[in-house]
């Protein structure tokens, strides 16, 4: 996964260079976006293309992976992070070319099998013995947030697995091998294969998604157009439909 991400980044650098030397404003941009944004951003890209004749090439991966790639010198026009901390890292690296803006929030939900056969209604239920609970690894934001939420609820869970990717949590619940997992609301909405059990705001953790144009942008105008569209009412509507809370 990591290797593939780097290969894609290298490839993007090459193709972007090709676009840059052609002269005149290129009509395409490269966006590094958190993997959880894929369903919403793919729709946004389709709209942007039809309205502004701007083609978008995405590199979807975990926010940490994208941050690493950018710091290692990958070229991109826009970076959309699943939290503000990694955006700050990129900004501190002098890579952000304009303002950063929080454009969406994502909350956690308990993913359970369709129909909720184990009757799970709260975080406290996850501590029941005999229940197979799968969480994201604390090294990824979803896992860190899940731990925070469990701490807020004063619940101790013995997870069967700490998945390095949120998709691992989702697929194990969807396959019926895990009884429950903690993931983003947007993951449950777009997955469509699991049911979501809401977590009260008092216990929940809210992730702030942040977007910025990058210094390495070949196409500043295009990057700004994309940036603006994400924050526009149309862009926000798409994000809302994908399970995000809008700003």
């Amino acid at each position: 996964m990591i290797k593939r991400g780097l290969a894609v980044a290298g490839f993007l650098v090459l193709t972007s260079c090709g676009g840059g030397v052609g002269g005149g404003p290129p009509s395409n941009i490269t966006v590094f976006a958190a993997a959880s944004l894929q369903p919403a951003f793919d729709k946004i890209a389709a709209r942007v293309k039809s309205q502004y004749y701007l083609a978008t090439t995405f590199n979807y991966a975990g926010t940490q992976t994208l941050t690493t790639q950018l710091i290692q010198g990958a070229q991109a026009d826009v970076f959309a992070s699943a939290d503000t901390a990694h955006m700050t890292t990129v900004q501190n690296g002098g890579l952000v070319g304009g303002t950063t803006s929080v454009f969406a929030h994502n909350k956690l939900e308990i993913a359970v099998e369709r129909g909720n056969p184990k009757r799970i209604h709260s975080l406290a239920d996850l501590a029941r013995s005999g229940l197979v609970v799968v969480l994201a690894d604390p090294s990824v934001p979803a896992g860190k947030y899940a731990q925070e939420a469990l701490a807020n609820a004063h619940v101790t869970v013995h997870p069967a697995s700490l998945e390095p990717q949120v998709t691992g949590v989702l697929s194990k619940v969807a396959l019926g091998e895990a009884d429950a997992g903690i993931v983003y609301v947007s993951d449950i909405v777009t997955s469509g294969k699991v049911d979501g059990i809401a977590i009260p705001d008092a216990e929940n953790v809210i992730a702030d998604y942040s977007i910025a144009r990058l210094n390495s942008a070949w196409n500043r105008a295009g990057a700004d157009e994309f940036f603006a569209y994400v924050l526009s009412s149309q862009g926000q509507a798409i994000l809302s439909g994908a399970g995000f809370e809008t700003v």
């Binding site: 940490q64 992976t65 090294s139 997870p159 069967a160 697995s161 700490l162 998945e163 390095p164």
Partner: peptide, 19 residues
Amino acid sequence: GNLPGRTQTIPLAVYVALE
């Protein structure tokens, strides 16, 4: 899955650490 002490072998630990 990936659980230290039970199923987290070195390649899994490397992958998680790489993040």
